[in-house]
Amino acid sequence: MLLSLRHEQRQLHLGVREARTLAGLAAEWLRRGVTAADLRRVLCSGLPSEGVRTAVGFLAHRLREKLPAAPESVPAPEPPPPPPALIVCAGPGEEHMFRPHVPWATTCGPCYREEQRAFWADAQARAEAAPEPPPWRERFAAVAAGGAVSDAEGSGC
């Protein structure tokens, strides 16, 4: 990053040895949470109007004087929880184990999907086998006449 400063400001041209002497100071900025782009902006902005006599001296001064305060100690993040224990799948077929993604799961994903397919196929078969409800006009007439529409007739609103 220090060697690339010359691309933004020709006055800040550094040699490799000079950049190595400043690398420790620049690394401290990065350790304190400053991004490389922000560090580049701090070093290249607000140059003296009369120019920079020595790039290494100017940058060393800036790196020391404008060093941000050390960040407050941040507590170490908690380690991630261990993966859930393996449990035996309650689904059909050979006995197999899986890790539940929710605590109440008793079947693995493929077995659960198969159960759902069977449930909805049964629900669809029952719906197709149910008698067609009477048209709305007949139901309305039955209610208006004081008669009640049976549950089997009134379930198809």
Rank of each mutant, 00 (worst) to 15 (best):
L3N: 02
S4W: 12
L5M: 02
H7D: 05
H7A: 05
E8G: 05
E8K: 09
L12W: 08
H13T: 12
L14H: 01
V16T: 13
V16S: 14
R17F: 10
E18N: 04
A19M: 06
A23M: 11
G24H: 01
L25F: 05
A26Y: 00
A26P: 02
A27V: 00
E28V: 07
L30V: 05
R31V: 15
R32S: 01
V34R: 10
L39T: 11
V42W: 03
L43H: 00
C44V: 15
G46Y: 05
L47P: 09
L47S: 02
P48H: 11
P48D: 09
P48L: 01
E50A: 14
G51F: 07
T54L: 10
F58T: 05
L59T: 11
H61Y: 03
H61V: 03
R62P: 05
L67M: 12
A69R: 12
A69S: 13
A70Y: 04
P77G: 09
E78A: 06
E78Q: 03
P79C: 09
P81S: 13
P84Q: 00
L86Y: 12
L86F: 12
L86S: 11
I87H: 01
I87K: 04
C89N: 09
C89H: 05
G91P: 04
E94V: 08
M97C: 10
M97D: 13
P100Q: 02
P100F: 01
P100N: 04
P103V: 14
W104K: 02
W104D: 14
A105T: 09
T106P: 01
T106F: 01
C108G: 11
R113K: 05
Q116H: 13
W120S: 06
D122G: 13
Q124T: 10
Q124E: 13
R126E: 15
A130T: 07
A130H: 07
A130E: 15
P134R: 11
R137F: 11
E138F: 02
F140M: 14
A141R: 08
A142L: 10
A142E: 01
V143W: 09
A145M: 02
A148N: 04
E153F: 08
E153I: 06
G156A: 11
C157E: 14
